[in-house]
């Protein structure tokens, strides 16, 4: 078992099976680098992750610890020599599994939590979690107006009215797509 500590004061610590925690590439690499130290006794501080977010991360990795590892695409070194393989290279469409759909903090008042989770998944390099989270956000903002997206994501419009008008003109053609 491995202990993970949140960045709160005092830190909140979670005990997680090593197998689950290794879904995080960041932690996996770290554990490999620290081979020889007794990591069971050494809590790992995560300076970028608060307790509620870490709790979600722990829940997710425990749920998915027995998933088959994602198939790493063999990197074709000589891209030009074999173009016929190019099709197989495409990323498969991410489908959010049922459990994950319920797991993602998607209520409106939980938006900040969702973003913190994405940040943490990125920092900890948990690619499948980052994938489904990003897929969720991408689906959510697809087909929405710019104003809606800004509002949903609490973003400021930092364009001047002139710039905005110019940009609108620049992409006006896209309306017809």
């Amino acid at each position: 078992m491995i202990q993970l500590c949140s960045n709160d004061d005092p830190p909140v610590s979670f005990t997680v099976p090593r197998k689950a925690v290794e879904l995080s590439k960041t932690i996996k690499t770290m554990l490999e680098d620290l081979e020889g130290f007794d990591m069971e006794q050494t809590p790992i501080p995560l300076p970028n992750v608060d307790a509620p977010t870490l709790e979600l991360i722990v829940k997710w990795v425990e749920q998915h610890q027995d998933d088959p590892p994602p198939v790493e695409k063999p990197r074709v070194e000589d891209d030009d020599s074999d173009d016929s393989d190019a099709d197989d290279d495409q990323e498969p469409e991410v489908v959010i599994p049922e459990w994950d759909k319920k797991f993602l903090p998607t209520d409106d008042e939980q938006k900040n939590q969702l973003f913190k989770l994405l940040n943490a998944a990125n920092y900890l390099e948990i690619k499948p979690l980052l994938d489904i989270g990003c897929k969720y956000v991408a689906d959510k903002i697809s087909g929405q107006t710019v104003e809606w997206v800004r509002d949903y994501l609490n973003m400021e419009n930092d364009y001047t009215p002139e710039e905005e008008a110019k940009l609108k003109e620049e992409i006006a053609w896209a309306e017809g797509l």
Binding site: D158, E164, I171
Partner: peptide, 15 residues
């Protein structure tokens, strides 16, 4: 994960 039309809209959101 966005298509071109959506990317154009997204580029309008902020700098």
């Amino acid at each position: 994960r966005l298509e071109l039309k959506e990317r154009c809209a997204a580029s309008e959101v902020c700098r």
